[in-house]
Design a binder for these strands. Structure first.
Length: 201
DNA sequence: GTGAAGATTAACT
DNA sequence: GTTAATCTTCACA
């Protein structure tokens, strides 16, 4: 393949932009986790933007700053991993500058590397079922809360650009009815035509 | 210290 | 379409 297909790790500067711009840029990028069990990687095909203190759907809405949301106030380029419903982990990428708690919630990945390991972790052979949802992708990638606050410019968990520039479609975010009028915002983004989305857009 | 609610999923009817 | 599983986090006392 040509040089443009070579993957390169995204640097700190990539994450220092506001949420909606970062969302568009992150779509189609590759998430890589070098775990003790092996390396897994997946292309981001679906995500949602959470726009900080003014976004009712965001954990940092209204300036809420607790042990859990603390990492969102750091500068961009860190992982925000949390447990939901006592059973599943979800992963976010922190973007924006220091004290600007924008984040990108990863909803679905397309498996790229370490697929056998993903199948083993998920207990299924169906490719489309490996990473098609926020909880699923964390299981498949081996992401848990030990990666809370992990530096995405480090060597355990990071994002890569392989030159792929997807056609982007957008729609309303999912399952945040409690967010009132902010639940109406078209802040969910996906790669058009991908077979790996968590829900129809 | 106590209690209510949740950025989900899979298995139901 | 509805619901149980399951436990951390946060708000209040």
């Amino acid at each position: 393949m040509s040089d443009s297909m070579r993957r390169r790790k995204l640097g700190r500067e990539f994450y220092l932009r506001e949420g909606l711009e970062a969302a568009g840029m992150l779509l189609g990028k590759i998430l890589v986790h070098d775990s003790p069990d092996g390396l897994t990687a997946g292309r981001i095909v679906e995500l949602e933007a959470y726009m900080g203190e003014s976004d009712k759907g965001c954990h940092a809405y209204g300036g809420r700053r607790t042990a859990r949301t603390e990492i969102m106030y750091a500068e961009g380029g860190y992982a925000y991993v949390y447990l939901i419903y006592g059973m599943y982990c979800c992963m976010n990428v922190i973007v924006g500058g220091k004290d600007i708690p924008h984040c990108i919630f990863l909803r679905a990945l397309e498996p790229v590397e370490g697929i056998e390991l993903m199948k083993k972790r998920r207990g299924t052979d169906r490719l489309r079922n490996l990473c098609g949802g926020p909880g699923k992708l964390c299981i498949a990638m081996g992401i848990d809360r030990s990666l809370y606050g992990e530096d995405l410019c480090g060597s355990r968990l990071w994002l890569e650009d392989d030159g792929f520039s997807p056609e982007i479609i957008c729609g309303r975010r999912i399952n945040i009815d409690y967010a009132g009028e902010d639940a109406e915002k078209d802040w969910r983004f996906a790669v058009k035509g991908s077979q790996f989305l968590s829900a129809k857009l």
